[in-house]
């Protein structure tokens, strides 16, 4: 994972150099996401087509949840772009976590370019149903 982080940093700095030379730097795409909550926690689902497990980075930094992935195209030699909706190979998305969430217990799965992140609530802070006793 750390290798990957380095790689991303490397690329960003390369981008900076490229920009200084008057070329276009690569801007990260915002992965579309769904977020929903149930009794036990929150679930985040994000589309990152082309990202494999090796090129995915899910990390918590303080109260921030950071999702990063890079796309690897297997391109033939002499490839020339004809049309492109997708103009970047980087996805990035970040969310601020609230205190009742247990960031140490976050679990992430990736399947067919869809990332699912499960963020449980701290057990002691889960909502409890208060029984209302009749008189």
């Amino acid at each position: 994972m750390s290798t990957h982080v380095n790689e991303v940093t490397q690329r960003q700095s390369d981008g900076g150099v490229a920009q200084a030379r008057g070329r276009t730097a690569e801007t990260a795409m915002r992965a579309p996401a769904d977020v929903y909550e149930d009794q036990e926690g929150l679930t985040l689902v994000a589309d990152m087509p082309g990202v494999s497990r090796e090129r995915l980075d899910v990390r918590v930094d303080g109260d921030k949840l950071l999702l990063e992935g890079s796309v690897q195209f297997e391109l033939p030699e002499q490839a020339e772009a004809v049309y492109a909706d997708v103009r970047s190979t980087l996805y990035r998305r970040s969310f601020v976590l609230s205190r009742e969430l247990d960031s140490a217990q976050i679990k992430a799965t990736l399947k067919d370019g869809v990332l699912t992140v499960r963020i449980p609530k701290r057990a002691e802070l889960r909502p409890r149903k208060i029984q209302v006793k009749g008189s």
Binding site: P76, V82, D85
Partner: peptide, 26 residues
């Protein structure tokens, strides 16, 4: 229109045309 699902990229080489369809979770 821009932003439609799925996104598409097309490249070509002297011998072939390749179409990339970004369709995650399908």
């Amino acid at each position: 229109p821009r932003g439609s699902f799925p996104a598409i990229n097309v490249i070509q080489t002297p011998a072939e045309v390749q179409v990339f369809v970004f369709a995650p979770g399908v």
